[in-house]
C-alpha cells in the first residue's frame, strides 16, 4: 500500500478521457480523482467505468493517491462502477451526495463484497462527499460511520443548488457548511478537502479562496485543471516564520522535558501539548513539502 504524506490537491479527471487519464500522474497533484459521475453522460457510463478500471488495473500509477468518484448511492450505476474499478491499485472511492451514515455503510458493504470477489487483500478507503443540506447536518455522524473514511469533502456546486441559492465568487454562502465539515473532520481525526474553484482563468481568486479555506482548517482542495495545482500547493506550504516558530517550540519543549519542567513559555506565551503537536505537524509538513518539491 502506498503511503500518503500530503493531500494538498486532488485533481479531477473526466472518466471518459483516455488522454488525461493516461497522464494523470505527471501533473504534480498529490492525488487524482477519476470521475464517473457528473462529467460522464448517461450513455457513456459503461465505457467510462471500463476505461478507468482498465487504467487502474493495467497501469497502476505509483506514488500518487488514486481515487474514483463513483455514482451516488441509489443510482443504477454504483454497483457496476465498483465492480469495474475496485483493484489492488485503487486507494479510495469518493461517494457523491452522501446524505447519512447509512449511505456510507451501504457502500462499505458493497466494497466488502467486491473486494472479496476479486480477492483484494486491502480495504479501499471511503471519502464521503457532502453536497446536500441533509449531508451537511449529518456530517459528524457520516465522518464516524466507517473506519475506512480518512477524508471528507465538500461539493460546493451541488450543495448551493440543493440550498436553492447561487454559488458566488466569494463563496460566503458556503461558510456554514465549510466550517461544519472542517470541525467534524477535525473531531473525527480525518482530512477535510475543499470544493473546486471553477474559474480556471482567475489564479488570484483561486489563491484567495485557498488561503481562506486553509485558515478554516482544510487539508487541501480539489482542482479541475493542472494549472491550479501549483498555486494551491504554494498556499498550503508553511511560511518560513511558521517553520521558525515551530522549531523554537519543539526545541523549548525538548529542553523542558530534559529539565523536568512542566510548563514552558515562548515569546511570552505559554506552550501546552496541543501547541507542541501543531508545531510538530508544521515541521513534518515542511519536510514533506521539501521532498515533494524535489520530485516536481
Amino acid at each position: 500500500m502506498k503511503e500518503f504524506k500530503l493531500r494538498r490537491t486532488m485533481l479531477y479527471i473526466p472518466g471518459n478521457n483516455p488522454g488525461m487519464i493516461g497522464n494523470a500522474d505527471i501533473f504534480g497533484a498529490d492525488s487524482v480523482l477519476f470521475d464517473l459521475e457528473d462529467s460522464v453522460a448517461a450513455s457513456e457510463k459503461d465505457a467510462a467505468r471500463e476505461l478507468v478500471g482498465s487504467f487502474i488495473k493495467n497501469r497502476g500509477f505509483s506514488n500518487i493517491e488514486i481515487t474514483v468518484r463513483v455514482n451516488p448511492m441509489g443510482s443504477e450505476y454504483i454497483r457496476d462502477d465498483l465492480i469495474a474499478v475496485v483493484d489492488g491499485n485503487l486507494d479510495a472511492v469518493r461517494l457523491p451526495k452522501t446524505n447519512s451514515k447509512n449511505d456510507v455503510r451501504e457502500l462499505e458493504k458493497m466494497l466488502e463484497e467486491v473486494e472479496k470477489e476479486k480477492g483484494i487483500g486491502r480495504k479501499i478507503r471511503i471519502h464521503p462527499m457532502i453536497e446536500t443540506a441533509l449531508g451537511v447536518e449529518n456530517t459528524f455522524d457520516i465522518a464516524l460511520s466507517s473506519k475506512r473514511i480518512d477524508a471528507i469533502t465538500i461539493g460546493g456546486q451541488d450543495l448551493t443548488a440543493d440550498m436553492e441559492i447561487v454559488k458566488t465568487e466569494k463563496g460566503d454562502e458556503l461558510f456554514y457548511a465549510r466550517t461544519r465539515i472542517v470541525m467534524a473532520a477535525k473531531a473525527a481525526g480525518i482530512d477535510a478537502m475543499d470544493t473546486v474553484y471553477a474559474d480556471v482563468n482567475n489564479e488570484q481568486g483561486l489563491i484567495e479562496e485557498t488561503q481562506m479555506v486553509k485558515k478554516l482548517g482544510f487539508t487541501g482542495k480539489a482542482v479541475i485543471n493542472p494549472r491550479q495545482i501549483k498555486p494551491v500547493h504554494n498556499v498550503f506550504r508553511p511560511a518560513s516564520e511558521e517553520i521558525e516558530w515551530a522549531r523554537e517550540v519543539i526545541n523549548a519543549y525538548e529542553a523542558a522535558l530534559k529539565e523536568g519542567k512542566g510548563v514552558i513559555a515562548i515569546r511570552g506565551k505559554m506552550i501546552d501539548p496541543p501547541v507542541v503537536k501543531r508545531a510538530q505537524k508544521i515541521i513534518a509538513i515542511a519536510a514533506l513539502e521539501n521532498g515533494a518539491e524535489d520530485e516536481e
Partner: peptide
C-alpha cells in the same frame, strides 16, 4: 491509444 484504452474500448 495506449494499451489500457484499447482493452477498455474493445471490452465495452
Amino acid at each position: 491509444a495506449l494499451d489500457p484504452t484499447i482493452r477498455a474500448r474493445v471490452s465495452t
